[in-house]
Design a protein around this nucleic acid. Structure first.
Lengths: 208, 208
DNA sequence: AATTCTACCTAACAATAAGTAGAATAAATG
DNA sequence: CATTTATTCTACTTATTGTTAGGTAGAATT
């Protein structure tokens, strides 16, 4: 049921066996957090699916808090790496619109197809107690910085609006988690539709 | 602490005392669900703040499920009534853009300033077990229908995109809950910014 | 005056939560 | 082989959860 990709398994075989087990537990946790929320998932649930008894989990993670923080941080790391890689694949003279469309596609891909970690992050961030939320803030700010740079050319007129615009874009993309059926819908088409709605107007005063 | 508005108290005095108590409990529940999520709020928390012992809650609501369903349904009812009232206040010949901007402002107002019920609904819908979520679906569909009608003129070219566009709009507005500080930020300005990003391009092929 | 209803109470339930202590086993290393 | 080291176990604690059972004071109704 829901085996990891072969490439993932291979890359993990290179790690120590202990580290591989740790990642397996994280995978299970991320999938459960994503589908059922933070408080509703117990350590028992995770342990059972990992084929061990509950206290054995505590050998790998000292607490549920540590486990969820690891999932949250990895969730942002995955989407950030995905977006950065997509942008790096672009020719260095690519225009703002191309860069934005590529970034939006990468973000949606990470969110819907690539990673339970990223979708878990988006889903449960708002449910976490304050201490856990603020533990994830540095990662989030680093990711927002990427979008700040991407969207800066669309805000030359009134730079004070840039943070709000970043939030609108990320928020609109993340909101698709709530209503898109990843099986049925075509993500490419969705990304293009979102880009069409969000971008065209915003790009009016970008010269290129 | 956080008393209801005077006008609300008055209108509630017209109800039976029992109904007023019921609404008071719902108010407390909505506020807690909104800020701390579904599973993290216990019947004890709600009872304590209502000044009674936990089992006394069960005189007013047969279960936590019933309580949360009441909060969820009311959350959609409030935002729908707010938006409908705003549209009704418009002259009958108002154009699509005016109607959309007015509706967006009303939705954001209900979400951020008016109602803990609406924000609780948006915040915790994704955390609910399937049975509770589907209990709220009829209300949600009724509200989506309003936006379908509002956005239909922007989708004459390709009507198949209408449901997705409805989702994008509602999703983008609801996403503001995650990053807007309702105390500091100016909601009118936020609504206008959102409208500018979302609407201008979408309205290109609307004739009026 | 008798009865029913309203709105709460105390006491306790069974289930489940996260987490701990320490023994037992498996794997790696000398 | 022996001896660490890594990993999982059993058995348990403490706290909290939603919920039920059964009762009570007082207001309303008959």
């Amino acid at each position: 049921m829901m085996r990891a990709h072969a490439t993932q398994d291979e890359s993990r075989a290179a790690l120590g066996a202990g580290e591989a087990r740790r990642l397996q537990i994280l995978d299970i946790a991320a999938r459960h957090f994503r589908t059922r929320g933070y408080a509703a998932v117990s350590m028992r649930d995770i342990a059972t699916e990992a084929g061990m008894r509950t206290p054995s989990l505590y050998y790998h993670f000292p607490s549920k808090d540590d486990l969820v923080i690891a999932v949250m941080d990895r969730g942002i790391a995955v989407v950030r790496e995905t977006v950065v890689a997509a942008l790096d694949a672009l020719p260095p003279d690519a225009g703002t619109k191309h860069r934005l469309v590529k970034a939006m596609r990468a973000h949606l891909h990470a969110l819907h197809s690539l990673s339970d970690y990223t979708s878990a992050n988006v889903r449960i961030f708002g449910q976490l107690p304050e201490a856990l939320r603020s533990a994830n803030l540095p990662e989030r700010r680093a990711y927002q910085a990427i979008w700040s740079e991407l969207l800066a050319p669309t805000c030359v007129a009134d730079r004070s609006r840039l943070p709000e615009r970043v939030a609108i874009f990320i928020g609109a993309m993340n909101a698709t988690l709530e209503w898109v059926d990843p099986a049925r819908s075509d993500l490419e088409a969705l990304a293009d539709h979102l880009a069409q709605v969000l971008l065209n107007n915003v790009l009016e005063d970008v010269s290129e």
